[in-house]
Design a protein around this nucleic acid. Structure first.
Length: 572
RNA sequence: GCGCCCGUAGCUCAAUGGAUAGAGCGGCGGCCUUCUAAGCCGUUGAUACAGGUUCGAAUCCUGUCGGGCGCGCCA
């Protein structure tokens, strides 16, 4: 594994040539020309360098072309237009990727270990309800990114921050109570404002009753529950539940939080997403880490008291305003816990702390960065990538998503309707930082709207060819370029050679969608090859080369699908 | 009002400051007596608007218009 492909070697020698001219090559030196007729690769480096070097771009291009033309993989390097250099690979260099893919197998494209440790947090949805389709986007992007970073050589640990304490879990406990009181089965008592209304609470309550067949809970004081649906509604309900339930309150909360956490974990597993660690906010709190973090901020002189509360001077570190750590009533804020969480992350030796935040949390980034820096950590290690919302559409109608009201489009429903692979592919088709319209009805009804079938079908077709041939791929001789010189083969080879750059770019820019779009292009190239070149029925001499090309493409499709957490069926 | 993200084909999305802005779906027209027609081939059709930066702008800057999200001693 991990020996750099043709593209990487060429880019490095180009970078060396640029450095030789006394300039910084930067990233993305080599590109692929839109028009394949210009060659395999191209670079506009000379145009970029012209200004800093104060030279004629064409003169620079001539020098670069000369250097590149001397490269063993390059057949020709020509200067074109204002200063582009177009490269044409030797047939052998173009085909080398076929043997490389077959030799590498499932680790095709895997890059050398970078030595970098990455901690990647994503989803981290509150354990108060099932995941909806918005969480699905974060799950698909985050898990794919983890796989991509690993393939690109990083050591990645994924993590889910579980908010298993605080007011919302009090409300959750209260909601369980209201659904679990004996004798209420069958009755549809309207729940008070603030309670979690979703049907899933009935299931959790039913499970709780099965677990505690003889358990008695006090009858809720239903008449007390007439209050407006405002900010305080949840707190009022929690207070009553705590009062009425006494010791049972804690047990109910523990049960509810664990049930919801397990439910979420199960849903994610069904989506092919598994976390390395579930980080409990509750454990963080009981360990005293939050107080310790606050104390450290205080020792640094970053905390002051005002109106009975403790404030962190986040504005001194670029935030819009200062933030409360400890409220006047003595309670810690959510923010305080998050500061401690990030301090904990910082102590675990990762080189990069990556977190995917929903767009509704983007305002949180400056204060977290501020606290991180104030605690003496290097803010350059922090990276927050924002995942924009998914607007769920069904045949043109927008579907509202609200956990508390219990009306939302569930991720589980989506997966049940179109399958995990189709859902994952659909999610990662778009960049994370753009808004996305997800038309469920359409994705469910016309499966061709999702490219997963196009890609998987290409894989299955390749498998079918190899099965029909019946031989062993490992025994194929090295692919002979002489038999892969046609236009259709060239398209496939071009995409195969583009896998490694795509993977690296996706990792570097945290853009899983690049892999999805590359897969579509590779699948298209194979479909075209399949429909125009008789693989098994063509001339005998070229058979091994054609089979090797198909086998390599099948392998590359499987690798790319795996990066996105999707399967590669051998039959469809 | 202020801040962040965004505006590309009828729809959903691509495009590292580069060369003629690409796919899929939809529409229209072709291709199964040969390896899976969940496919292939052709065609239709777009950078919200106005300035600016430069050899070159969908991409960077300013403004306008439109959309999403946020702006609490909630979580």
């Amino acid at each position: 594994m991990a020996s750099p492909g043709t593209f990487a070697r060429l880019e490095e020698s180009l970078a060396a040539a640029v450095r030789g001219q006394g300039a910084d090559p930067g990233a993305g030196l080599l590109e692929r020309p839109k028009d394949a007729g210009r060659g395999d690769y191209a670079t506009g480096a000379a145009l970029r360098l012209a200004k800093t070097l104060k030279q004629n771009p064409r003169a620079i291009a001539e020098e670069l072309a000369e250097t590149l033309a001397a490269h063993e993989d390059v057949e020709a390097a020509e200067v074109a237009g204002p200063g582009f250099v177009n490269l044409r690979l030797t047939p052998a260099a173009r085909c080398a990727v076929v043997d490389a893919a077959l030799a590498a197998g499932d680790s095709f494209g895997t890059q050398e270990a970078s030595g970098r440790k990455v901690l990647l947090e994503f989803v981290s949805s509150n354990p108060t309800g099932p995941l909806h389709v918005g969480h699905g986007r974060a799950a698909a992007l985050g898990d794919s990114l983890a796989r991509i970073l690993r393939a690109a050589g990083d050591q990645v640990a994924t993590e889910y921050y579980l908010n298993d304490r605080g007011l919302q879990t009090d409300v959750l406990a209260a909601s369980l109570w209201l659904r679990a009181v004996p004798g209420l089965q069958g009755e549809e008592k309207p729940l008070p404002a603030g309670a979690y209304q979703g049907d899933y609470m009935k299931e959790v309550a039913a499970a709780w009753r099965r677990r505690h067949p003889g358990g008695t809970l006090p009858e809720p004081p239903w008449l007390e529950f007439a209050w407006p649906d405002d900010r305080e509604a949840g707190a009022r309900l929690a207070e009553i539940a705590r009062r009425e339930l006494g010791e049972d309150f804690e047990a109910l909360r523990k049960y509810a939080v664990e049930a919801l956490g397990a439910m979420i974990e199960t849903e994610l597993r069904g989506f092919n997403v598994a976390f390395d660690r579930w980080f409990s906010e509750r454990e963080l709190a009981t360990s005293g880490a939050i107080e310790a973090a606050i104390k450290k901020l205080e020792e640094g002189g970053h905390v002051y008291e005002k109106d009975g509360a403790k404030w962190f001077r986040s504005a001194a570190f670029g935030d819009d305003k200062d933030r409360v750590l400890v409220r006047a009533n003595g309670e810690l804020t959510y923010f305080a816990a998050d500061v401690a969480y990030h301090a904990d992350k910082a102590g675990r030796g990762a080189d990069l702390l990556l977190a995917l935040f929903g767009a509704d949390h983007h305002g949180y980034v400056p204060r977290l960065r501020a606290a991180f820096e104030a605690l003496g950590h290097d803010p350059a290690k922090l990276e927050f990538d924002i995942i924009q919302f998914v607007a769920l559409v069904n045949a043109g109608d927008r579907i509202k998503m609200s956990t508390r009201a219990g009306s939302f489009a569930l991720l589980a429903d989506l997966i049940a309707a179109i399958g995990p692979d189709a859902a994952r592919l659909h999610y990662v088709l778009a960049r994370g930082d753009v808004h996305m319209d997800f038309d469920v009805g359409r994705a469910a009804s016309r499966s061709n709207d999702n490219p997963v079938h196009y890609i998987q079908y290409a894989h299955a077709r390749g498998c079918s060819l190899l099965a029909k041939w019946g031989g062993r791929v490992e025994e194929l001789p090295a692919a002979d370029p002489a038999h892969l010189g046609d236009e259709r083969a060239a398209k496939v080879l071009a995409e195969l050679n583009w896998y490694e750059p795509t993977l690296r770019q996706a990792a570097r820019q945290r853009e899983p969608h690049r892999v999805a779009h590359w897969l579509i292009a590779l699948a298209g190239a194979l479909h075209g090859y399949y429909d125009h070149v008789p693989v098994l029925g063509g001339d005998e001499a070229g058979l091994p080369a054609r089979l090797a090309l198909v086998a390599a493409t099948r392998q590359a499709l499987a690798c790319g699908l795996a990066l996105l957490g999707a399967g590669a069926p051998t039959k469809m």
